[in-house]
Structure formats: structure tokens, C-alpha cells
Amino acid sequence: MPGDSLTALVRFGPLVFPAALGRGGISSFKREGDGCTPRTVMAVLGGFRRGGMLTPDRSATRLFRAGDTDGWCDAPAHAAYNRQVRLPFSASHETLLRDDVLYDFGFILDWNIRSRRRGAGSAIFLHVAKPGFPPTQGCIALKRRDLQRLMPFLRRGTLIRVV
């Protein structure tokens, strides 16, 4: 939103939604752990949703149901860096089944996945925001209802532009 480098407006056709960005703001030089949202164009590669949740997702992208064995590796030195992994997992990772609502619905964005560089950042998702839009760890986060309004239009290959 104007004057705040940690929030943004997401535009899709005539729709405009407020969003939270990374605690480090937007960066053209994204690095693992910097908390920045990468300044780039990222394609939607896939998505996930909380397993066991009964809320219909109406997503144009098939969402896999994340359970307690689903994680995402964020350890640059590991061979599975910036990949989905099965828990328990010995290297540093993020758990996709969280105690909060952030990953009730999430879309995997192609940041450092198809052409991976160690240390260039991992796990950039479009997901549900915390109330009040506090910064993320680098992801883009929308109100749950706003994300649900967009989900029917988010297909594999849909481009998300961060400027």
C-alpha cells in the first residue's frame, strides 16, 4: 500500500486486494533467509491446502493435501534445497501443515525452482495472510477470502509479477 514497502496491492483484472510482503521488502538480489520478496515474474507451479480441511477450494490448479509429513527444504547445502520433502527431515525445513491458517491454501511460485541456485532463496508461496498484514518471510500473502476469490483463476503457469 502507498508508503509501506512491506505491503502491496495485488491486481487481477478489475479486482484489487491488499497483500503482505516479506519483512525485508522487495529485492532484486534475493538470498536465503533475507526475508525479501523477490522482484521478478514468477509462474504458479502448483499448490497445496491443509489436509482434512472441508472448505472447498474451487481452485483451477489441483492442490495437494498437506499433512504432517509434508515439508519444504530451505537448507542451501542439501540436495533437496527448495524442494518439497517428506518429514521427518534432518536438514533445515519448513512444515507445510502449520498450527495457524497461513498454509490453509498456498500456491508454489517458481522462484529458484526450475533453475535452482543454492542460497538464492526458497519457499516463495502465495498464501493466506495473518490479520493486519504483518510481513512474511518473503512470500506474498492475501486475506483468506481474497485468495479464495483468486483461486479459480490461478492455473499452472499463471504469472505473478512483483514490481
Rank of each mutant, 00 (worst) to 15 (best):
R65C: 06
R11E: 14
G24W: 00
M53Q: 11
P38Y: 10
G106P: 05
Q137I: 01
K143F: 03
F153K: 09
L45W: 08
F105Q: 05
V16L: 13
P38A: 07
R31T: 13
I108P: 02
R11M: 13
F105S: 02
L21R: 06
W72V: 04
C73Q: 07
E94L: 05
R114T: 14
L109K: 08
L21K: 04
W72N: 08
T136G: 00
F17L: 11
P131A: 12
G71N: 07
L9G: 07
S90C: 04
G157Q: 07
F125A: 10
D74T: 15
N112S: 03
A77H: 14
F48I: 07
S27V: 10
A141F: 05
V128G: 04
M53K: 14
A19E: 02
T95Y: 03
L21M: 09
F153P: 01
P135W: 00
V41N: 09
D70P: 02
P2I: 12
R117I: 15
R161E: 15
D70S: 12
L6T: 10
F17I: 07
T136K: 08
L63N: 06
V10P: 01
R86I: 13
V85P: 00
P134S: 09
G46D: 04
G157I: 08
P135C: 00
R114D: 09
A141P: 03
I108E: 13
R50L: 03
M42A: 11
G71P: 00
T95R: 15
G35P: 09
L45D: 00
R114Y: 01
K143V: 06
M42Q: 12
I160A: 00
V41S: 14
G71I: 01
P56N: 03
R83S: 12
D70F: 11
S92Q: 14
I124W: 03
A8Y: 01
V162C: 07
F133Q: 01
S90Y: 11
G121P: 05
P76F: 06
A20N: 02
I26T: 03
S92T: 14
P135V: 02
S5Y: 04
A79S: 14
G71Y: 02
K143W: 10
F105L: 13
D100T: 09
R161N: 11
L9S: 10
D4S: 04
V163Y: 08
F64Y: 15
R155I: 01
F48C: 01
G3V: 05
I108M: 15
P2A: 15
D74I: 15
G33I: 02
Q148E: 12
L102Q: 13
G121C: 11
D68H: 15
A8C: 06
G47Q: 09
A91E: 15
R39V: 04
V44T: 07
F153A: 05
P152K: 01
S90F: 11
F153Y: 13
S59E: 07
F64K: 00
E32W: 00
N82P: 06
G47N: 10
T37A: 06
T136C: 06
R145G: 01
D74E: 15
P152W: 00
R118E: 14
N112D: 05
I124M: 08
K143R: 14
R155T: 12
L21S: 09
D4I: 11
L96V: 08
G47E: 05
